[in-house]
């Protein structure tokens, strides 16, 4: 059986860990239309990689720092009301990415394999990475429990939530920081370019089969797990890049959910 190889076990565990956290967080990304925010966080990973190499630490920490900085900057920039959110995000995403790429080009004597970062390399995940994925993942899920209802209320209507006494800014910030950390720990599994897909595709696939927000979060985890397992096996079977294989698998699930939804409507 192919799972006897230890690196495969680690890859599977890493993918499952990310899927479990990305399910509920991804639902909020979809409900709150924050896909582009996720993309901006991911783009700034380049800045984080440069930072990590410069400081001689694991790029994962650099990416987390860059993503947190983007989240804070967005909240700060939103206070001036002249530019729309997507314009601000576009500036942050591409400005940060370009700055990161320029910084990397300055790092003499360091060969950075950007492809690994772009598409991830789940088969190279070590036990230390797994520790981070599960440690940070468990902390985020625990943090999400008390934030769940306030976040739902903010997703329905932020002003109404504020008028009813929910501390909107701290809750929003906490959620953005969680996304920032998820981007950092998920980078090795699916890569910078595809991280957002692990947030939004399983959640979108879960929508048609869910009548409560909680059911949708659980279904999104389920869809994510199927995508990870299916993608990993496909990647071993046909020698495919594992990150993209997982995302293709998630996309197929989403398409099936559309078809199943149509049938359910007609029946």
């Amino acid at each position: 059986m192919m799972l006897e190889a230890e690196f495969l076990q680690r890859a599977l565990l890493a993918g499952l860990g990310i899927a479990v956290v990305a399910g509920p967080l991804g639902c909020f990304v979809v409900w709150r239309r924050m896909a582009y925010f996720g993309t901006s966080l991911a783009h700034n990973a380049f800045l984080g990689i440069a930072l990590g190499i410069l400081l001689g630490i694991d790029p994962m920490f650099g990416i987390a720092a860059a993503a947190v900085a983007v989240a804070l900057m967005l909240v700060f920039l939103q206070r001036q009301r002249r530019l729309a959110d997507d314009t601000l995000l576009g500036i942050l995403a591409h400005g940060g990415m370009a700055l990161g790429l320029v910084a990397i080009s300055f790092l003499e004597g360091v060969r950075v394999d950007l492809l690994t970062y772009l598409f991830g390399d789940v088969l190279a995940v070590g036990w230390g990475d797994l520790g981070w994925i599960y440690g940070a993942g468990a902390a985020m899920l625990a943090g999400l429990v008390p934030l769940w209802r306030p976040l739902l209320m903010i997703s329905v209507h932020p002003e109404l939530a504020a008028a009813e006494g929910i501390p909107v800014l701290p809750v929003r910030l906490a959620f953005m920081l969680m996304l920032a950390i998820l981007v950092a720990i998920a980078m090795k599994v699916v890569g910078i370019l595809l991280i957002v897909s692990m947030l939004i595709i399983p959640a979108a696939a879960a929508r048609r089969f869910s009548s409560t927000p909680e059911a949708m979060a659980v279904s999104a985890v389920g869809a994510g797990v199927v995508a990870v397992v299916g993608g990993l096996f496909a990647s071993i079977q046909w020698d495919l890049p594992s990150g993209p294989a997982m995302v293709v698998c998630a996309t197929v699930l989403f398409s099936l959910s559309l078809v199943a939804g149509e049938f359910a409507k007609r029946a």
Binding site: L160, A203, R207
Partner: peptide, 14 residues
């Protein structure tokens, strides 16, 4: 508080 008529994202089951 009853804010101005607002739309809830169709992806949010509520």
């Amino acid at each position: 508080y009853v804010p101005q008529r607002f739309a809830i994202d169709p992806t949010l089951p509520m």
